[in-house]
């Protein structure tokens, strides 16, 4: 009985989210660039955070995602400004390069235990910033890369599949990021429900046991980490083309921490967690701008309170509990009315 409630809730929820996300919001707010901007940003941050979630899923903490967002961003920036490559090629290439670098660096560092891995990933973001700062021939150092061209139309066999992106028009980016997010989400859902997802979970619960029954732990760790870095690079590329600029400080240590935060806020047990976290925190952060001075402090207090009272994230509030409590409330009041 309980299971059908859960499944039907999930379905209703998914449908509502789709309709709102893909139809209602862009239609109703197509001229509200501020809101569109917030949602586009949230979508991009969600994609990047989903990568971080995957590393949490194997029981590790990755505080270095900012580095890969930076790598992906710079790859796209350089490809788009220095070569004539189309964005539609640059985007996947950025992800792939980020993933490749993740794979190469993951091999040695994933062997590190606990805190050493955590601390090292934290330093990685700083390292990436410094690297971009110093490779001036390629990245123009501190000056950054600006005037990154907007995506051109994508023509397959003469037919315009995707129209040219025009300045000031947020809708194309809205749909681009939304569709990529949805695709990524469902791809990860499928991955997580398959044998691979089970292996990830087994790594998180008892890595030693998994190795001792013959499963190649290193391979799966690397798989999760590589996909994570790929998503980081992909999101970074999207962000950079959206804002049409990139600097060594576009993604900082604070951003790496934020990606982690979004995962936690939503709830580490659910793949939807990082998406929920990204959207809620980005939106509320934007609206807290009015109290700009105290924004960070409130953020910090919220974080601490959350860790103290809801350490398993928002989604850990059981929908079933809410349903039962509502029913109880209704039946109590019904009695009162009948009397």
């Amino acid at each position: 009985m309980h299971k059908t409630y859960k499944n039907s809730y999930k379905l209703y929820f998914a449908i509502i989210v789709f309709v709102v996300y893909l139809i209602i919001v862009p239609l109703a707010f197509r001229n509200n660039n501020y809101l569109l901007n917030v949602i586009i940003t949230s979508s991009i941050l969600s994609i990047i955070s989903l990568g971080v979630w995957l590393v949490f899923a194997i029981g590790r903490i990755n505080i270095g995602q900012g580095a890969f967002a930076l790598i992906g961003g710079y790859t796209s920036a350089i490809l788009l400004t220095k070569t004539g490559i189309s964005f539609w090629l640059a985007l996947p290439l950025s992800g792939i390069l980020a993933g490749l670098i993740g794979y190469l660096i993951g091999r040695p560092i994933l062997r590190l235990k606990g805190v050493y891995f955590d601390m090292l990933t934290l330093c990685m973001t700083q390292f990436a910033t410094l690297a971009m700062l110093n490779m001036t021939k390629l990245t123009s150092g501190a000056r950054g890369i600006i005037n990154i061209p907007l995506p051109k139309a994508l023509k397959i066999a003469g037919i315009t599949v995707i129209p040219q992106f025009t300045p000031g028009n947020y809708i194309p980016f809205y749909y681009l990021t939304a569709l990529i997010l949805i695709f990524t989400f469902f791809a990860l859902v499928r991955l997580n429900n398959s044998r691979v997802g089970r292996v990830f979970s087994s790594l998180r619960q008892h890595e030693g046991l998994t190795a001792s029954i013959g499963i190649d732990v290193v391979k799966y760790r690397l798989l999760a980490y590589t996909i994570c870095c790929f998503l980081g690079g992909l999101g970074g590329s999207l962000f950079v083309v959206y804002t049409q600029s990139i600097f060594p400080t576009t993604f900082k240590v604070a951003d790496s921490v934020n990606f982690m935060l979004y995962c936690f806020f939503g709830g580490l047990e659910y793949l939807f967690g990082p998406i929920l976290g990204s959207f809620l925190l980005t939106i509320s952060f934007e609206y807290l701008r009015v109290i700009q001075k105290y924004q960070e402090a409130i953020y910090a207090v919220l974080l601490i309170l959350m860790m103290l009272f809801l350490p398993n994230g928002l989604l850990s509030i059981r929908i079933g509990q809410l349903h039962d409590k509502t029913k109880l409330f209704i039946s109590k009041n019904k009695k009162k009315v009948e009397m």
């Binding site: 292996v199 087994s202 619960q205 008892h206 998994t210 499963i215």
Partner: peptide, 16 residues
């Protein structure tokens, strides 16, 4: 695997 059911636990051993 504490968070898996009995069935899920034993299934993992079959992956090979």
């Amino acid at each position: 695997y504490k968070e898996f059911s009995v069935t899920e636990n034993i299934e993992v051993a079959h992956y090979l």
